[in-house]
């Protein structure tokens, strides 16, 4: 089964067994990322977007586990690889960036050592070559006087600079895909845009695909090629970013769009979605969004919608269903 797609996720289901029953954090999620493409994944906290990213890099923390579905990288299944096989993919094929740059770096090691360590793990280089490459990487991510700063410890960098180091680390072995989990949430607003621009620029130069997990629709609109909107562990809508923003099909997406301030509509009030996302142990029957949905009708309370074609996008909403109820 060959595929032009870089990453394919099919019917992914992530479960957390707890004492009071099994929580389904990610439920039947399918998505694809093409080489060099930026896929935004957006949703409220707890929607399962980070969990999807974590499942892709194979770092779900026990007792969390992939219950069913598959993840393929360039056609090769990677969700069931043993730890030592998966380890060679992490960093080398799939890089990762986490939310908090302040805690992502080991405080006891110089940033240069952490870079060299990563490079030597994946690439056949001598220590000196790896060190040159580390300096080059730090320069690429815009750290001034990189050759000196390579000997600094993480605490000697500011938050924004640290996230640049983290990006350098993620790119160290030229991965084909980077999973960036809320890469700017912990940073000052003024620095957020810089980091996103940097990430975008570097990935375009290196031809790296990005799965950009965020709750910030603004970042997605600026950065992503396509976007997946997640709600309560499922994909509510997925499609090209302009389409989703301009012509959202799922009422939840419409609500999200209403919550972004836009230029030009100064008088319009920002809308908000009433209520909050259900807890994972209390997901309602039918469509998970039905208690909050302004356009809810009977079918939504009984039957769960799958992703269906809707314009250039796909949405899991009975409003876009072409055919009447079946099964």
């Amino acid at each position: 089964m060959t595929s032009p797609k870089l990453l394919e996720v099919k019917n992914l289901r992530v479960e957390f067994p707890t004492r009071r029953g099994t929580l389904v954090a990610v439920d039947d999620v399918s998505l694809e990322i093409a080489a060099g493409e930026v896929l935004g994944v957006v949703g409220e906290s707890g929607a399962g977007k980070s969990m999807t990213g974590t499942a892709i890099i194979g770092l779900l923390e026990p007792p969390g586990r992939i219950a069913s579905g598959e993840i393929r990288l360039e056609g090769r299944r990677i969700d069931n690889l043993p730890y030592h096989e998966m380890r060679k993919i992490r960093g080398r094929q799939i890089g990762a960036i986490f939310q908090d740059p302040l805690t992502s770096l080991n405080p006891l090691y110089k940033v240069g050592d952490q870079l060299v360590e990563t490079i030597l793990t994946h690439l056949p280089m001598t220590h000196a070559q790896a060190r040159d490459r580390a300096v080059k990487l730090l320069e690429d991510v815009g750290i001034p006087s990189a050759a000196e700063r390579i000997n600094s410890y993480p605490h000697q960098f500011s938050g924004g600079m640290r996230q640049r180091v983290v990006i350098a680390l993620a790119l160290a072995a030229e991965p084909k895909l980077i999973v960036a989990d809320e890469p700017t949430t912990a940073l000052d607003v003024s620095i957020q845009a810089q980091i996103i621009q940097l990430l975008k620029k570097l990935c375009r130069e290196h031809g790296t695909a990005v799965m950009l997990v965020t709750h910030d629709m603004g970042v997605i609109a600026e950065t992503a090629d396509r976007v997946a909107v997640m709600y309560a562990g499922r994909i509510a809508e997925i499609g090209p970013v302009q389409e989703v923003i301009k012509r959202p099909h799922h009422p939840y997406t419409m609500g999200l769009m209403g919550a972004i301030p836009t230029m030009g509509h100064k008088t319009e009030r920002l809308t908000q979605i009433d209520g909050s996302m259900p807890r994972l142990n209390a997901i309602p029957r039918g469509c998970a969004f039905n208690p909050r949905c302004p356009k809810v009708f009977d079918r939504c309370r009984v039957e769960r919608p799958d992703l269906m074609p809707a314009g250039q996008s796909h949405a899991s909403c009975w409003l876009v269903a072409k055919e009447p109820a079946h099964v």
């Binding site: 730890y83 890089g95 990563t118 793990t121 993620a170």
Partner: peptide
């Protein structure tokens, strides 16, 4: 901690993660 998770995400070997970091 996050830096251990990140060290794993960088593909470091178990030994490097456990004993180095």
């Amino acid at each position: 901690t996050d830096y251990i998770k990140f060290a794993r995400a960088r593909g470091l070997s178990n030994r490097a993660v456990h004993f180095g970091h």
